[in-house]
Design a protein around this nucleic acid. Structure first.
Lengths: 133, 133
DNA sequence: ATTGATAGTGATAATCATTATCATTTAGAA
DNA sequence: TTCTAAATGATAATGATTATCACTATCAAT
């Protein structure tokens, strides 16, 4: 990973993501910033979200329609609707248990997955090698 | 959801998925079946995986590169590498705890998400309405 | 403050997983 | 058997994400 330099755009993107409670897509962030940063490019939003993710600063929530992002990596109780693709925050019974079940939820749960993000051993070693050049 | 009819193709797809331990993509399943089912179409694989998912028979693992599928919905300890996109099965310390941490893992974990799949209240009611027609 | 190396940006073209379409075939209840 | 809805194969379309490239900004070293 190359060293990060600060940029107005990255600061704005991170600030926008952290100041809102939904789980916006790259495009939603882009349009939210368009007024204050008219020259901002959508590609820049995608690039920066990817970098921030790789540095563990934000969490990507892979979704069928378009990936969503979470600027508060501590909250991890989401459910995604297989039909409309919406992301919903859930309150959990027996919080802390893998098989905890969402309470007061009118929908229907058909499955769940605990997914870790990071770097596998091989890729980690490769990037370390690259750093030390 | 319309009533399911049996088909050679769907049976083959489900059998292939359930008989292997990796987490293949739609395309990987397609190529694995191509020999025995030369006329199989990639679109059919996508269609059937989507149906099987909607019926809770298989689990989709949304991934940046291409979604992967799991035919054994009971195993849910995965990690995805942010670089190579690979899915790895993990052994978990304190299994059952949300904050369980993978052991004997040489890579680096930067985040995790517990994701539920299913139908939100709105979509569930809509599909019930449709069923009763 | 100037310079040089490298990271970042904006614009846009390219990629590629997934879905839609449609004519034809098949499953299964009547 | 016959009818209706579902399934298929082929292929075009979609759309999120990435690559490219010329130019600009950052920042450590001088």
């Amino acid at each position: 990973m190359p060293a990060l330099k600060t940029s107005k755009q990255r600061q704005a993107i991170l600030h926008e993501l952290c100041s809102r409670c939904d789980h916006p897509t790259a495009e939603q962030i882009y349009f939210s910033l368009k007024d204050q940063h008219p020259s901002l490019s959508l590609a820049t939003v995608y690039r920066n979200l990817k970098q921030l993710e790789e540095n563990g600063i934000v969490v990507r929530i892979p979704c069928p329609e378009a990936d969503r992002f979470d600027g508060k990596p501590k909250e991890h109780y989401h459910m995604t609707c297989l039909k409309c693709g919406g992301i919903i925050d859930l309150e959990i019974e027996n919080a802390g248990q893998i098989d905890a079940f969402p309470k007061a939820f009118g929908g229907k749960i058909t499955g769940h997955t605990l997914m870790y993000f990071g770097y596998c051993e091989k890729c980690l070693k490769e990037s370390e090698k690259t750093e030390n050049r």
